[in-house]
Each structure stands twice: as structure tokens, then as C-alpha cells.
Design a protein around this nucleic acid. Structure first.
Lengths: 205, 205, 205, 205
DNA sequence: GGTTAAGCGAGACGGTACGTCCGGTCTTCCT
DNA sequence: AGGAAGACCGGACGTACCGTCTCGCTTAACC
């Protein structure tokens, strides 16, 4: 059976949680530049070795602390149309990124991915691709439904959507903006939010 | 007169250049994580103090080394239409970001901006805003010309264009892609590829 | 009765012996500086707790491993005269200390005694004083026999004899030397080699 | 010329002295087991690197701190006879070793020499051999003078003298003892301190 | 034959110090 | 006054062991 216990003292769930909480608090308070393994260990009341035993770097601690949240909090339920699905997905994503603490965490993860190539891989698999997969559910459904525009391929849609979101987080520090959601939905789903009748009147003057 | 020399020995141009070259080489060889002031100084045959005297951080050395290039190499000359202007701008930008050495430099700058708030400001003013200003020339010209779509506001266009570019650089490490340029131009300038009536003479990059 | 068994699982003699053997091997291979509780446990195939349960420190493991040997192997049988007794005692002691493995062990014990005061007490009682007691048998017998010089008191004799032995072990790493035994016997038992009248039958070692 | 300065900032004499003082204080207060590089650095107000730059180990700091003292404080001036020279030398040595602070230092050095073979070599050359050389001055003078007993060779005299001294320091912690000095002088120089007339009356009963 | 009690291998835990790296500052002489 | 050299104080790194603490599992004696 797979349920067998390995020998020896089992891992402390309390220590694991204390470490994740301490890391999130510290990155919110001091920024990623001020985040150190020693600081996390001290705040969590834990030996440094306990951190090194389970995570390869401080960024991996943050990754574990933050990865699940995005999955759980951004819905991909069917809203009846591609445009509606996209709008709900974008709105939830942007709302999430608007929590200062979470935005700081995302900045840290992306920064570390630029510095440490090994972490970049784990970040891609454990976070970025998961988010793309979530969006793929929406585009797949739209294709089956028949209301997916055929020119910006789903992969390009993901590049544009996540690119715009990340740019706001990393470069302008203003992730949320309802108007931006409207513009993206309009541009990608060709469905002006309030004017469903004459969509592309302003396309060419 | 402003042209008066301050007393004492003038700044060594040779040292300045050796430092910039050493920094670029090192960031290309070892990545930003392996870039240190001591390493730059050793490679450039320079005292550490000489670096600290003129730059606030290692990232600022890179910023000076790389900032001017983008300005010079991405043209904003009038191509006759908004779509054409955009296509040329995007193509040049993407081509630039496709140099591995330059992409590594951009990754380093964006990473440091997430870690060091003071540098983030200098990076915004010295690089990001300059790129947005370049794009603004194109949208301003399009507005005067009359072929600027009014729904995605110019600022949003910049978010989408640069967001997609940066996302490719930071997250997927595949910045250049002619198809992506096509899709963005189509989506933002409303030039469906199925409309051969338009002036897509410059489509081939 | 004292022979009653306490409840619970009895101490494992196999583990005890494995620990003593592992400690002796490791101290011989890596020196005392490379001897660790974790290393002993790993080599002996034993949990660390099993060592901590029975010995206060790694040095006490060595003490138990090596203490008995000296008692057993250095004879104090009556040789007929103080000089002869002394000669046999010294010869055996020096010969013992000439085993490299045992010398390394003695060095370790004396070193730890300088570092850990509590161990120093156990070392004195469990080793040093036992050796002095063995020598005291010889001096007592000489006093009763009447051939004990009265000026270097027995305690001083012990200081000189063991001092010289330990100095050779600790400082010069050349414990054994037949000529040294001769000199010490001559100096302490007043048997000038130039006086062939005396009973130097046992001179040749 | 040899007096040329190397380039760069010269070594700080203040830091060097602060480190030696801190090490001596700490070893006296906490014993060698409680002496750490970090503790020395903290007490001296010095970076750890400054210690590692100039000394290979904490014991070498103590060696430098203590080595010169013995040379300076134990006189080898001519007292007119071998016995008198020896008595003065022994008295000064024992008096020196009776300073608790210095005795603790000597214990630390000898202990470390048992643990670290590389340090043992430096200790021998930098301390032990120097002390033997000092004693050799006395035996050489005695030989020239003609009052050196010929049987315990000078090397053996050194083994006995320093052996007894070290044994008292390491094993009994009672280095000084005027009676011990008398006994050693008598035994090695065959000159009872107050009874120069009938030297060896009690030699054989 | 089940209960109780302790020893045992294993290994995670909170700590402390290690020896190294680098940051940013300073002190020296030279240009 | 700038610059090369390099020592300085400081702080975090990642590692090695310390001595302690759970775990599940023997291995006995006792009921």
C-alpha cells in the first residue's frame, strides 16, 4: 500500500505552516530583498535546517505559500459565453493581484525566476502553466460552443491576457482596473460590454 | 559657463567603459544571480570604489549599459498607417529582445526592479517610460491621422503591447514570434488578415 | 537481591559493543577532531539516542573502550627490588603507549579533559588515579622492603613518571624509548649504570 | 629594499590587538570549549573575516597571544652552577604556569594540538621547541662548565622537566610546588638544595 | 496471552557555530 | 580629486553536529 509511513519522526505540520506564514508576513513587510532564510526561521521559531530540508530556496517557500491560492480563487465556471467567461476570469485574476500582499509575492516569484534558472522551471510548472491551463479551459469551452474567434490562437490569448496582467503587477504596480478588463474582453472576444449590437463600428474610420 | 572643469583628476572614461563591458559580459555568462560588484571590479581591473562612486547598484550599471540601445534601434518613423507603424515598432522591439544577451539584461533589470524600490523608479524613468513614450508617438500620429481605434485607449494599448513582450521575455523566454506580431496588430489595429484590401506590404519581416 | 532485572527490554550488548568498536575505529582513522556522535552512530548502525542513553559524551565512549586495557596490561608483580619493579612497570606502560591506536585514544582523552571539566573528573577517577594507584603499589612495596629513596616522595615520583610518559605521547608523539626507561629508573631509583656492584640484572629490556 | 609597503590599506594593528585580548579574556572566562571565533569577533568588535584572514584557527590566535610571554618571562641567565640555573628556570616556569589565565591557555593549546595535526606542528615549532631551546642553553652551559651529569642526556632532561610541568598543568591542575622544584633539581643535578655536603646519603639504605 | 515497560533504529526538530561570500566603507599610495 | 588595491565591519549564506523529541518496532517480565 502507498499509505505506509516512512520510519523516523514524521514531518512537523506545525513547523511547515509556521514557515509559510512567516515567509508571507516578512515578504509583505520588508519586500523580497529583505527576506532571508534566517529571518523566516527566526520569525517561525524554527531551525534553519528545517527550511533547507524541505525547500530548495526562499522563493520556493513563497511558491508553495502562494501557488494554491490562485487555483482556488479564480473561477472558470461556465458563464454562457466566451466573453462572459473571460470577463469573470479576468476580473477574479485582477482582483486577486490587487491584494498588496499577494502582488508582492508574485513580484518576488517572478524576480527570482529571472535570477535562478532552476527555480524558474519550478515556477513555470507550479504556477505559470497552471494559470494557462485554467484559461485553456475557457478557450476550449468557447471553441466547442463556437464563439471563439479563430485568429488570436488560444496560446496568444494567454500571452496577451497574462502578459498585460503581469506587466501591470511588475512595471506599473496597478494590477486592477475594470476598464482594462473591458478593453481586453472587447479586443479578444470582440464583444463590447454594453454595446452588443454594433461591435466593430470604430474598427476602421 | 557650464563647460568649466571641476578641479582634480577627471573621471576615467576607460574605467567607465571597462565596467560597462565587464558587467554585460558577466551577466551574459553567469546570469544576474552570479553578477557581483566584486566580480565586475575584478573583471574590469578596477577598484570597487570606482563603481560605487558612479552607480548606486549593480543594476544601474546594466541600466546604463543597455538603456540607450532600445531607443536607438526601435524606429517610430511614419509608415503611412497605424497598423503599419505598429507592425514595424513591434517587429523591431521583438527582434531586439530576441538577442539572448539583451534579453538576459532586460530580465535582470526587471528582476532588480522588483527587489529594490529605488531602482524601480530609476528603471521606470530611464527605460519603461521611454519605451511607452516611443509608442505614444505612434498612437498620437494615428489619432491625428484619424485611424486610431478609440476603445483601447493608448495607455491600454501600451499595457497590452509591452505586457505581451515582457511576458514572453520573463515567463516563456521566447520573445520573438512573427505570428504574435500579426495577432497583436490585428487585435489592436483591427486589420483582419482575411482583408487583403489593406496595405500589408510590410508584413514580411 | 541486586541481580533483579528491571522491567522492560534489557540493554543491547550488541549495540554497546558496536558503539565501542566504531568509536575506536573512527578515532584511529580520522583523529579525535573527526569523531562525532553521528559518525559513531552511523558506523555502528545505531540510533544516536542509544549513545546518549548510556554515555555523557563521545569521550566517555572512548574512556570505556580504553580504560580497562591499561589496568590489565601493566603488571605490578614483585620483581625483587624497587628498581626492577619500576623498570618493568615503565617498560610495560611505554610499550602500551606505543600502539598508535592506543596513543591516539589517550591523546583524545587528555584533550577532552582540558575542554570539558566534567569529563576531566571522570577521566581522573577512571583512568589517571588508577594508574597512580598502580604505581603506588610499587612504591609502597619498596618502602616496606626498605629500598625506597626518601627524597622524591611517591607522589612526586608519579608526577615525574607519568609526566614524562604523557609528554612523550602528547608533545613528541614518541612514547617508547628503552634508554628513557633506563634514565628514569636510574634517576628515581638511584642505580648509577657506572656502579656495576648494584643488581642491574634486569637492565636489558 | 624589504621595507616597501604592499599596496592597499595596511593591516589594522588595533584590530589585531583587540582580537588577541578578546581571545585571552574569553578563554579565561569560559574555557576553551566555550571559545568561538564568533565570540572573539563579537567581543573584539571585529568582523569574522578579519580573524580568518590572519589566523588559521582559534588556537592559533591563542598561540600568538601566549607564545612570546614564556620566552620573555623565563630567564636563562647564568647563576653559577647547573643546579642553580635549573632551579631558577624551573621556578620561573612553574610560577608562570601558576597564573590561572596562562595555565588555561596552555591547556587549550595542548588540547588543540591533539585534535588538529596541522596546529600541532605550529605549536611545536612556535612554542614547545622554543622552550626546549631555552633549557638547552642551560645544559650547554653546564656541559662547558663541567657540572652536567652525563647520564640523563639533555633531551631526556627536557622530557622529564617539561613532562612533569605539563602533567601538573593538564592532569592535576596544580602546576606550582616549590618542593617539586627541589626534587627535580636534586634528581637531575644531584645537588640537594641545602645539604651540598653529603649528597646521596639516602640513595641506598 | 495480553499488558506494561523500556530499549532500539530512524530521522525530524530547535539551535549554535562553522568557514565563505559579498556588500558597502575606509585607508593607503600613486597619478 | 580620481583610481587600484585591499583591509575593515557586518550580515546572510548553506552545512555540520549537537542534544532532544517523536514515531513504529522489538524484547522482555508480569499478570
Amino acid at each position: 500500500m502507498t499509505g505506509e509511513r516512512p520510519p523516523g519522526r514524521p514531518r512537523s505540520e506545525a513547523a511547515r505552516r509556521a514557515i509559510l506564514v512567516a515567509a508571507l508576513e516578512l515578504v509583505a513587510e520588508t519586500g523580497y530583498g529583505g527576506l532571508t532564510i534566517e529571518g523566516i526561521a527566526a520569525r517561525a521559531g524554527v531551525g534553519k535546517q528545517t527550511i533547507y530540508r524541505w525547500w530548495p530556496s526562499r522563493a520556493d517557500v513563497l511558491l508553495e505559500a502562494g501557488a494554491a491560492k490562485a487555483d482556488l480563487l479564480v473561477p472558470v465556471a461556465d458563464q454562457g459565453s466566451y466573453a462572459a467567461d473571460l470577463r469573470v476570469f479576468l476580473g477574479a485574476s485582477y482582483r486577486l493581484a490587487n491584494h498588496p500582499q499577494l502582488a508582492e509575492l508574485l513580484r518576488a516569484l517572478m524576480a527570482e525566476a529571472q535570477i535562478d534558472a532552476a527555480f524558474a522551471g519550478r515556477f513555470r510548472v507550479g504556477f505559470l502553466e497552471r494559470r494557462r491551463d485554467a484559461l485553456a479551459i475557457i478557450t476550449d469551452r468557447a471553441r466547442q460552443r463556437g464563439d471563439l474567434p479563430d485568429r488570436p490562437a488560444p496560446g496568444t490569448v494567454a500571452d496577451i491576457v497574462f502578459g498585460t496582467l503581469w506587466y501591470r503587477i511588475l512595471a506599473t504596480h496597478q494590477p486592477l482596473d475594470p476598464q482594462l478588463v473591458n478593453d481586453l474582453v472587447e479586443v479578444l472576444a470582440s464583444t463590447p460590454p454594453a454595446t452588443p449590437a454594433g461591435p466593430p463600428a470604430e474598427r476602421r474610420s
